[in-house]
Computed example of a mutant assay.
Amino acid sequence: MPVFGRLETEVAAKAPAYKFHEVNSKRIHETAKICPKYFQKIDLKEGEWGGEGSVTCWYFVIDGKAVMSREILEKVDNENQSVTYNVIGGVLKETYQSFKFIVQAIPKDEGSLVRWTLIYEKLNVDVPDPNAMLQFGTDVTAEIDAYLTQEELEKKTIA
Rank of each mutant, 00 (worst) to 15 (best):
M1R: 13
V3G: 08
G5F: 08
R6W: 10
L7F: 14
E8N: 13
E10M: 12
V11I: 15
A13M: 05
K14S: 14
V23C: 04
S25W: 04
K26R: 12
R27Y: 01
I28T: 01
T31M: 15
T31H: 05
K33C: 00
I34W: 08
P36N: 08
P36W: 08
Q40K: 15
Q40S: 11
K41Q: 13
L44Y: 06
K45D: 05
G50Y: 00
G51Y: 00
G51W: 00
G53M: 04
G53I: 03
G53W: 03
S54M: 04
S54W: 01
S54N: 06
I62C: 09
D63N: 15
M68P: 00
R70M: 08
E71Y: 04
I72D: 08
I72K: 15
L73G: 00
D77S: 13
E79F: 12
E79G: 02
N80I: 03
V83N: 08
Y85G: 02
N86A: 13
N86P: 02
I88L: 05
G89I: 05
G90R: 09
V91R: 13
T95W: 13
Y96C: 09
F99W: 13
F101E: 06
Q104M: 08
A105R: 06
A105H: 05
D109A: 12
G111M: 14
R115L: 15
T117P: 06
T117S: 12
L118C: 09
L123V: 14
N124R: 07
N124T: 04
D126M: 13
V127M: 10
V127D: 10
V127N: 10
D129L: 06
D129E: 15
N131E: 13
A132H: 12
L134R: 10
G137V: 10
D139M: 15
T141L: 13
T141H: 13
E143Q: 14
E143L: 11
I144K: 09
I144L: 04
I144Y: 05
I144C: 06
D145I: 08
Q150E: 12
E152I: 03
L153D: 06
A159L: 05
